[in-house]
Amino acid sequence: MGRGEAMKKYMFIFLLTTIFFLSACGVGMLPSKDPWYAKHYFIMQDFEREAYKSLTPQGRLDFQKLFWEARQPVAKEQFDTRIAFIERVYKTENHTQPWNTDRARVYLLNGPPASIDYRQNNDWMTKAIMNSGQTGSRDVSDRSNEDIQANIAEVWVYPYEKYFVYYIFTFSPPSSWKLNPSTFQNNQYLQALENLNKDLTFGIVDLEDYKAKLEALPHKK
Rank of each mutant, 00 (worst) to 15 (best):
D199N: 08
S141N: 10
Q78V: 04
V157G: 02
G133D: 04
P98V: 00
F67H: 07
D34Q: 13
L55E: 02
S54R: 15
I83S: 07
Q134L: 11
A128L: 07
V165M: 13
T18C: 12
S176D: 15
P173V: 00
D62W: 05
F171S: 09
I148C: 06
V140W: 11
T101E: 09
L15A: 14
I83V: 06
Y189M: 05
K33Q: 14
G203W: 06
R71H: 04
Y107V: 00
G26A: 08
T81F: 10
D142T: 03
F85Y: 15
V155M: 03
D209N: 11
E5K: 03
I43V: 13
I13A: 09
Y166W: 04
E208M: 03
Q97W: 09
N187W: 02
T81V: 06
L207M: 09
I43C: 07
T170D: 11
R105F: 06
W124M: 12
G111H: 07
P173A: 08
V157L: 13
G111F: 05
I204G: 05
I148E: 11
N145D: 09
G2C: 03
N94R: 14
I152W: 10
I168R: 12
S32N: 11
Y118Q: 10
Q58K: 11
V157W: 09
D80P: 03
K39T: 06
Q149H: 10
S172H: 11
V74M: 09
F63T: 01
A70H: 07
R49N: 08
S32H: 13
G28R: 00
G59V: 01
N186A: 10
S132N: 02
A6Q: 13
P31W: 05
H219F: 04
H40S: 14
F171P: 02
E5A: 04
M125A: 13
F85A: 02
Q97P: 07
L108V: 02
D46W: 14
I13L: 10
T135W: 13
P57Y: 07
V140D: 09
L196I: 00
V27M: 11
A70F: 06
W68R: 11
L193C: 01
D102L: 02
